[in-house]
Amino acid sequence: MNDLLQLLLNSTLSTVSDVLPIAIIIFGFQFLVIRKPIPHLKNVLFGFFYVLLGLSLFLVGLEEALFPIGRLMAQQLTDPAFILGSELGRLAVWSDYGWIYLFAFTIGYATTIAEPSLLAVAIKASEVSGGSIGIRGLRNAVALGVAIGITLGTFRIISGTPLHYYIIVGYIIVIIQTFKSPKMIIALAYDSGGVTTSTVTVPLVTALGLGLASTVPGRSPMLDGFGLIAFASLFPIIAVLGYAQLSQWRASRSSSS
């Protein structure tokens, strides 16, 4: 119990230091430049307090319940003894890593659904679009993109192919999709790449990347352990644009028939 309180205190302190510069900038500009009181100041202060409290509890809960077991799991799944089983001693090839791909896919999807900043953007997008972009739909599309991205990223670490080939091909796909997608969705789709990777996804995905890079023969954790986050920020853009294209195509087909 004492440990829990200690953890809660640490997490609150680190969240406060996260909020502090933002509060200083906002209130500084508000009083020195805008020179008008903030509307509904009491509500806003309560709101900031709730955000602080919420994030602290959220982080402590993750640290308490899910991160230790998730990290351990990433290590165990990448352990050669688990991957090769009774054939230990032979060199593993990329197709031996089936469970890892499944883990990468499912954990990428699951952590993105729980990501608070994606939820914030989805709420705003639904509000601005008058509900035509659903909160659930956007989050599912983004999560699917992260899932595919992380899976491909683990394949890259296992196969040892250069990171920038994947990223450049991804860029080309995004550019082509941009010219074929409805204009309304483009900015939101670009944004959805940046919001996927924060509090929940990064710790688990980093553990997976480092675990893989240190156990796959010929990979160095320093050089190959990075890059999964980059996949997780690129593929949601493709997924959201794709989702919009699919909806548009469906709508045009049903209206023409």
Partner: peptide
């Protein structure tokens, strides 16, 4: 794990409340 999950759920709920009261309006 059960305690942790309860904390995460509470935290997420407070965060969304604070979002709508504080961060978005500001």
């Amino acid at each position: 794990i059960v305690i942790g999950v309860i904390l995460v759920v509470l935290g997420l709920t407070f965060f969304i409340k604070g979002l709508e009261m504080g961060l978005f309006p500001v």
